[in-house]
Design a protein around this nucleic acid. Structure first.
Lengths: 173, 173
DNA sequence: CGATGTTACTAGGACATCCGACTATCTGCC
DNA sequence: GGCAGATAGTCGGATGTCCTAGTAACATCG
C-alpha cells in the first residue's frame, strides 16, 4: 500500500521528533497514533476476511446484531445506538444489506415512524458464515493470546468510559 | 449522534451475545470492537479540536511530519510510507493542504518522477498552533494519565508488531 | 384537542480511504 | 545503448462516515 516497509517504527520515530522539537503531550500523541494505526491494521484484515462473502465490517456488525435479537428484526434507530454510528450511516448500511437480499425493511407494527430491518434467511446464514470466517483470523487479531486481548480491552476502557460508553457498570474483569 | 446513550456497555453486551449463541473468538471480537470504538472516539475529538484551524487529523499529521524534516520538504512517497497510507491518499491530503496554502508542490531537484511537498510559512506556523490545540485536549485522550497511555501503547504493540511496524527494534520500555 | 417538542428516517453534500489503471521516470543488466 | 522491471504520482471510481436539513409521526401538556 505504501511502498516499501520502513526499517523503524514510525510511531516511536514520531515521538522522538515530538520531544526533540519541544511539542508537548508526546505520550498522548503516541497513544493516539497507536490506536489509529491499530484500527487501520484491523480494518484491513477484517475486510479482507469478509471480502469473499461480499461483506465489510460495518455490514457484518449489523447482521450480527440482528442475529442476536429475538425476532431477527430491529428498528434502524436501535441499530445505530448499539453500533454507535450516525443514523445516516445506518440508512446506508441497511440500504446495501437490503440490496444484497440480506435484510428487508418492514414497517413497525405500531409506530409508523419506525422501520425495522429484518434478517432474511440468507442474511442469517451469511452472518454465521462471516462470524466463522472472522473467528478464523481472530478478528484481525490473530497472533494475540487471551492475555494480549484482555490488555487491549483494559487499556482502552478508560477512554471508552470517558466517552460515556458505560453507565457505572462494574468493569468486566 | 446516535440518539440517546445506552444504559449499558454495547461491547460487553455484544460479548455476552456472542457467547450465548456459541460464536467463537469472543475475546478477539471484543478487543477488535474496542479498538474500532476507541478510534471513533478519538478521531471525533481530535477533529473537533482541529476544526477551528481548518484541519483534520490526517492533514495535521502530514504537516507535523514536514515540520520535523530538515528542509521542511519531503517526497509524497515518503509521506505515505511514514504515515502508512495509500499513495492516492497522500495525493488527496497534499491537494488540500496546497489549496489552503500550507504546503507547495515543488519538483525534486534530481529525480523528475518525484514531487516534494514543501511547508510554507503559514503551514509551519499552523502546525505549531495545531499541535498546541491538540496538546490541550491530550490528543483526544484527555483524562488518561501517563500510565494509561503507556498501557495503550503496550497493549497495541503486539498487533503493530505482527503487521510489521517494527523491524526487530527493542520495544520502547 | 391542539400547539410544541421529540423521535425516526432519508436526501444531498462533504471528506477520507482504498483499489486499479495509466503515464512518466529511473535502474539494472545483458 | 536499450529493454525489462521497479518506483512516483495522479485520475476515476467505489465505499463508508459524518453533518445539515427536511418530512412524517408520536408524545406531552396546557
Amino acid at each position: 500500500m505504501a511502498g516499501s516497509p520502513l526499517p523503524f517504527d514510525p510511531i516511536a520515530e514520531a515521538r522522538r521528533n515530538w520531544e526533540k522539537h519541544g511539542w508537548d503531550a508526546e505520550a498522548a500523541m503516541s497513544a493516539a497514533t497507536s490506536i489509529t494505526r491499530a484500527h487501520q491494521i484491523l480494518l484491513r484484515r477484517i475486510d479482507a476476511a469478509l471480502e469473499p462473502l461480499g461483506l465489510v465490517f460495518s455490514r457484518f456488525e449489523a447482521l450480527a446484531l440482528l442475529s442476536f435479537s429475538r425476532t431477527g428484526a430491529l428498528p434502524l434507530s436501535r441499530i445505530g445506538q448499539r453500533l454507535q454510528v450516525h443514523p445516516t450511516s445506518v440508512t446506508n448500511t441497511i440500504d446495501r444489506l437490503e440490496a444484497d437480499g440480506l435484510v428487508a425493511r418492514v414497517p413497525h407494527p405500531t409506530d409508523r415512524r419506525t422501520t425495522l430491518a429484518e434478517l432474511t434467511d440468507r442474511g442469517r446464514a451469511l452472518a454465521v458464515e462471516a462470524a466463522t470466517a472472522l473467528g478464523e483470523v481472530g478478528y484481525g487479531l490473530g497472533g494475540m493470546d487471551d492475555d494480549d486481548l484482555a490488555n487491549v480491552d483494559r487499556a482502552l476502557r478508560p477512554l471508552r468510559a470517558a466517552a460515556g460508553d458505560f453507565s457505572g457498570e462494574a468493569p468486566a474483569t
